[in-house]
Design a binder for these strands. Structure first.
Length: 432
RNA sequence: GGAGAGGUGGCCGAGCGGUUGAAGGCACCGGUCUUGAAAACCGGCAGGGCGAAAGUCCUCGUGGGUUCAAAUCCCACCCUCUCCGCCA
């Protein structure tokens, strides 16, 4: 959520952000709502002040007639305040709804345009030149008996899967491998709940309800399955105040992720690429505003480190404005080369890292206290909102796709990159 | 799921229906003292809205209610803890 006080001051930027993200939102109407809510709030304050004064005067001894008059006036003031409170409540609710429709500011360097208008920041590794016809991960996994979509469909439905044999171990190995890559950087490893309350999900900027929702709801309970540990990790510190020396706080969340993939049919989504459930190690950072850009680069660096070690070619893209979503100020994705994707191979998203600045922190009420360095007085400093960032360390289903397709051998076996061998316990899967 | 206890400021913890936005302690900040640090002592210090400021308003889990007046009384809900049951 944006700071309503910045609406007028930075109106043009917000309008530009809406346009660039293809958000239809009325910024000027929101400004008007903010003004109206403020005016009503100020009027209510004045009424409250009068009421407080009246109440104080009621503490003295009064003769019966005066007491009766006083009580009557007290009732009148009470009713007046109640009416104004209702008006304020409505106005503020309206403002909040409008505010929720506004996206974050846009990083000046984020490419403007649609999904396909991303900028390629760099490419690492070379797509492998095969001396045989490479298969896609589904063919490879079927031949090696690593997945079972058919039986999963009968158990849970389409787009669920059983991972079998080395694939099951690979899932666990990748998680621990990814954790070991980032823990030395100061991340606290955390296994989070896989469910969360709708209000937490909303506070992080996701929509738990509605036709288009990517979020599963639990029938009979006020709970949803999380789409990412970003939700639980962000919610973990909702309504808290850090001291400056606690920042940056870096969390490495391990969770399952669930997505309805509503409206995703027909897109390139064979096999494990787009599924309803996968597990993920997610990095989440709370930091000072002045540090968030550097932290964003740091998350990107760690993502690259992980896929470098997995010997998977990838490119880094700077996501274009219309593909950014509401909370992200800027977003970088890693796209791995997937030889089995499309006709002759294609890039496929494997990680994503976003700087959400204070957009999530505002609704979550995550703040920090500066330790008053240099300031003369030291007192009277306001607490500030932190910035939040998130980034994928490893997202399992897609990491497995990339591993199988990139490291397949002529005989149908899969070479395991050296860095992963200690975790998986073998340097090769198959042939069978 | 059943029974009981409880949710107060960054943390711990007091709080007769009005004098309590809140005692006390810890932490933190400033100062005195000290070669320096510690200790001791003095002072400051909840969060948020509106406002240039003075100031003013709101907030004692959440939402209702009683009252001229609620952190204090009543109701509902949420959460935590203890015991019992069930269970990987």
């Amino acid at each position: 959520m944006l700071d309503p006080r910045l609406l007028e001051e930075r109106r043009d930027e917000i309008v530009e952000s809406c346009r660039a993200r293809r958000f239809s939102a009325d910024v000027d109407a929101t400004i008007a709502l903010h003004r109206r809510a403020n005016a009503l709030r100020t009027a209510l304050n004045e009424s409250n002040r009068l009421r407080n004064e009246h109440q104080k005067s009621g503490k003295q001894k009064l003769d019966p007639a005066a007491r009766e008059a006083h009580t009557a006036e007290g009732r009148r003031l009470k009713d007046e305040v109640a009416a104004q409170e209702e008006a304020v409540r409505l106005a503020e609710a309206e403002l909040e709804t409008a505010l929720r429709g506004l996206p974050n500011f846009l990083h000046p360097e984020s490419p403007r345009g649609d999904e396909s208008d991303f900028a390629v920041l760099e490419t690492a590794g070379q797509p492998r030149a095969f001396d045989f016809e490479p298969k896609d991960h589904l063919a490879l996994a079927s031949a090696l008996d690593l997945v079972d979509f058919e039986r999963a469909a009968s158990v849970a439905g389409q787009k669920f899967y059983f991972l079998k044999r080395e694939a099951a171990l690979l899932e666990l190995a990748l998680q621990r491998f990814a954790l070991d890559q980032i823990l030395p950087e100061g991340f606290v490893p955390i296994v989070t709940p896989d469910l969360a309350r709708p209000d937490v999900i909303e506070a992080l900027g996701f929509s738990p309800r509605g036709e288009e929702s990517q979020i599963y709801s639990i029938a009979g309970h006020d709970l949803c399955l999380i789409g990412t540990a970003e939700i639980t990790l962000g919610g973990m510190y909702a309504d808290s105040i850090f001291s400056e020396d606690e920042l940056p706080l870096k969390l490495a969340g391990v969770s399952h992720c669930f997505r309805t993939e509503a409206g995703a049919h027909g897109r390139e989504s064979r096999g494990l690429y787009r599924v309803h459930q996968f597990s993920k190690v997610e990095m989440f950072v709370f930091c000072r505003p002045e540090d968030s850009e550097a932290q964003h680069r740091e998350l990107l660096r760690l993502e690259k480190k992980i896929f470098d070690a997995l010997e998977i070619p990838y490119r880094v893209i700077d996501i274009a404005s219309a593909d950014l979503g509401a909370p992200a100020y800027r977003k970088f994705d890693l796209e791995a080369w997937m030889p089995g994707r499309g006709a002759g191979g294609d890039w496929g998203e494997i990680t994503s890292t976003s700087n959400c600045t204070d957009f999530q922190a505002r609704r979550l009420k995550v703040r920090f206290r500066r330790t008053a360095e240099g300031e003369s007085a030291g007192a009277g400093k306001k607490n500030e909102l932190v910035h939040t960032l998130n980034g994928t360390a490893i997202s399992n289903a897609r990491a497995i796709v990339a591993l199988l397709e990139n490291h397949q051998q002529r005989d149908g076996s899969i070479r395991i990159p050296a860095a992963l061998v200690p975790y998986l316990g073998t340097d090769r899967i198959g042939p069978r």
